[in-house]
C-alpha cells in the first residue's frame, strides 16, 4: 500500500491509535498524510509526541486520550500546550501511563475492563468520571480502578522491517506497545523502513524481535525515514536539530509556524524528505 491508500481508508470521527512512545518510533509519515487529508473530528489515542502536537495544531482532533505529551529533549510539546491552553481540543482523557497500557490490553483481550491500582486517589478519576471502580469479589473486597478497554477503529504503527504480509520486527531496544495497539484495533496498518522477504525478517535477527504477526495487520507501507523526526533505532536516531526547529516554530508566532508549515508540511512525503535533507545540509 501507499500512505495515501492507508489514509483513504480512514473516515471522519474514527478512533485512531498511534504507536511508538513520545518522540520515539512514531509513524510520522502516516501522521503527515493525515495532516494533508481532509479528515476531521478524530479521536487520538497516543503516548503523545509530535504526532499529537501536529494533529491538534491542525484542528484534526475532537478527543485526545493520552498519559503525557513530550518530545523528551524538549520536555513540553508546544503545539499540544497551545491547543490545551486555547481550549481547541474539545475533549481530553488524561490517564496514568500504566492505565493506558491496561486499557489497550483490555481491548486486545476483548474485555470491557481490567482492574488495577493506578488512578486511585488521583485526579485522573476526578477528571474522568466515566471511569469507575470495581470491588474484588474475594474476601479482601479491595476497591480497584476498572480501567475501560481502549478500543480503536484503526492502529497506525511504524517498525524497522516488515514483510508484505504484515509480519514485522523492531530492531531497537524497546518494542513500545505497537503489538497492543494492533490487537486493540479493528484494523491495523504498519509502515516500515524496509519491506523484506519473509525469510529476511529472521535471517540475521532473533525471532523474538518479530513483534507483529500477519493476523494483527491489515496493510503494510514502506516509508523509508518514515519515523522522522522521531527515533527509529538502529536505522536512525532522533533528528534533534530538526526537532528543535519544529519546537521553536510551534512555540513562536503564527507567522513562524506558517513558515515551518510552508517549508515542510505543504507537499507530499517525498517533498517533506527533500526539504528535511536540504535543512540538514544547510545546518551542517
Amino acid at each position: 500500500m501507499s500512505i495515501e491508500q492507508v489514509v483513504d481508508t480512514l473516515e471522519d470521527g474514527l478512533t485512531v491509535g498511534i504507536g511508538g512512545w513520545g518522540p520515539r518510533r512514531k509513524p510520522m509519515a502516516l501522521v503527515r498524510a493525515i495532516l494533508r487529508s481532509d479528515l476531521k473530528d478524530l479521536t487520538l489515542v497516543s503516548w503523545g509526541g509530535a504526532d499529537v502536537g501536529l494533529l491538534t495544531r491542525a484542528g484534526k482532533v475532537r478527543k485526545l486520550v493520552y498519559a503525557f505529551v513530550s518530545l523528551d529533549s524538549v520536555p513540553l510539546e508546544p503545539n499540544f500546550q497551545r491547543a490545551r491552553q486555547e481550549g481547541t481540543i474539545p475533549e481530553v482523557v488524561e490517564l496514568d501511563e500504566g492505565m493506558f497500557m491496561t486499557g489497550l490490553q483490555a481491548a486486545a483481550q476483548r474485555l470491557p475492563f481490567l482492574p488495577m491500582r493506578a488512578g486511585l486517589g488521583s485526579d485522573v478519576l476526578t477528571h474522568n468520571p466515566a471511569i469507575r471502580t470495581v470491588t474484588s469479589p474475594y474476601d479482601d473486597a479491595t476497591e480497584l480502578v476498572a480501567v475501560p478497554a481502549l478500543r480503536l477503529d484503526v492502529a497506525l504503527v511504524h517498525l524497522n522491517r516488515a514483510d508484505r504480509h504484515g509480519n514485522a520486527t523492531y530492531l531497537g531496544p524497546d518494542p513500545y506497545f505497537d503489538d497492543l495497539f494492533c490487537m486493540a484495533a479493528e484494523r491495523a496498518y504498519v509502515s516500515c523502513e524496509q519491506v523484506v522477504d519473509t525469510a529476511g525478517l529472521t535471517v540475521d535477527t532473533p525471532v523474538q524481535r518479530v513483534l507483529l504477526n500477519r493476523m494483527m495487520v491489515d496493510g503494510v507501507v514502506e516509508t523509508p525515514h518514515g519515523a522522522h523526526f522521531t527515533t527509529c533505532t538502529p536505522d536512525y536516531e532522533r533528528d534533534e536539530r530538526f526537532q528543535r526547529a519544529y519546537a521553536a516554530a510551534a512555540a513562536g508566532s503564527d507567522e513562524e509556524w506558517g513558515a515551518f508549515e510552508d517549508r515542510f508540511l505543504r507537499g507530499d512525503e517525498t517533498a517533506y524528505q527533500d526539504a528535511v535533507r536540504a535543512f540538514a545540509q544547510e545546518q551542517a
Partner: peptide
C-alpha cells in the same frame, strides 16, 4: 507534561 506514571 500530563500525569505520566505518577498516579500508578
Amino acid at each position: 507534561l500530563g500525569s505520566r506514571g505518577a498516579p500508578g
